[in-house]
Amino acid sequence: MSAQAKRARFQSLTLPHLNRMVALASRWADGHEAEDYVQEAYARAWVAFGQLRDPDAAFPWLCQILRAVASERRRTHARRQDLLFIGELDAAHEEMVASDAPSPLDDLLARLEVGRLREALRSIPDEFAEAVELHDVHGLKYREIAKITSVPIGTVMSRISRGRQLLAGLLAVAGETRAKRGVAS
């Protein structure tokens, strides 16, 4: 394959995923930095292009590279998120599903500003947040997530399930805190 043909093929297989790549990179970094991650990932993808055997798997393949870039870049940066006490989130989730009362989730979601839910994902442990985000925000299938994150599909199932449970618990705890503040004031 000539260099020109290789480049044309690279672009046709990878450029359609640029929007999703930037969206995904924004889970690790903001603005220009997220774009730097993506550019670095594309530069590496070009070098390793011969390793892409299945053209239909271009996006998961790019995601794997982007994950590696993000992991290297973030090694020296402290994680920004404040991990909440997991037990508290579990208890809040348990209360939601165990009670006969109508779930407060509808109300909590309705009151949430646009963009806050994805932001809230950053406050739960990363392995759960990543699986939930790849599925719910970026529309990847479980088998694709398993490939990207190098874990068995059963692990993806439990991470997504548990990730959403923790997120629900987080919304409930945050809602309760806001309500208490409202009463206090």
Binding site: N19, V22, V38, V132, R164, Q165
Partner: peptide
């Protein structure tokens, strides 16, 4: 639990995502 999982998945799918700049 099913309702909770479905609601959160739906709400997350509506979240806005970053878009690449022309420069990138």
């Amino acid at each position: 639990e099913l309702a909770l999982q479905q609601e959160l998945a739906r709400a997350l799918s509506w979240e806005p995502v970053a878009r690449p700049s022309d420069d990138l």
